[in-house]
Amino acid sequence: MRRRSRTAALVLVGVMAVLLLAAFALPANAEVLQGDCTGGAVFSNGASVTERQPLNQVVAVPAADTVRYVGDTNLEPLGPDEKESFSGGVSVALPWGSVTVVSWSGETDKTADRGSYTYDVSGLVPEGTGGVEVTATHTQRGQTCIVAVTMSVDGDPGWQAFTAAGLTALSAVGVAGAGVKRSVK
């Protein structure tokens, strides 16, 4: 009986090790880019991102920052009093699809823009996580640009990660408990 239990424990550990190794051996994603748009952003920690950033490279950005950005649709500039409609948004890819986090629409007289934008996601997004694929879409004058980058919040894993690890260990005990023979009454 003791030998059987030892074998079962080894099988459990082996299965978990295979799962972990398989998870680490993920193939790199392919870069996704549609349209002729170009752009980039520079963060205060030195990180920068452009439309040519490969998706398998994770860009770690600060949780709160003022980012300098530049974007160009590479369309012909409009006349002095001309305006045209535009729409777009930013979505985050999930294992089962994506969710739109920001969307925009309206009329503009610009085909390019530059400036700075201040954001703060500290407390909302955990630090040090795996890459989050962020896709930006912009449609103007019949042209749709899709630019995707993989980002994460700079920093070390926080209490959320250690809480999840503890709960994982607890549920592993439950899995082992499922292998305990029921007593026959």
Partner: peptide, 15 residues
């Protein structure tokens, strides 16, 4: 979730 939070898995991973 743990692997994602420790940076081992991306959020859109099928795993």
């Amino acid at each position: 979730v743990t692997l994602f939070l420790f940076g081992a898995l991306p959020l859109n991973s099928p795993w």
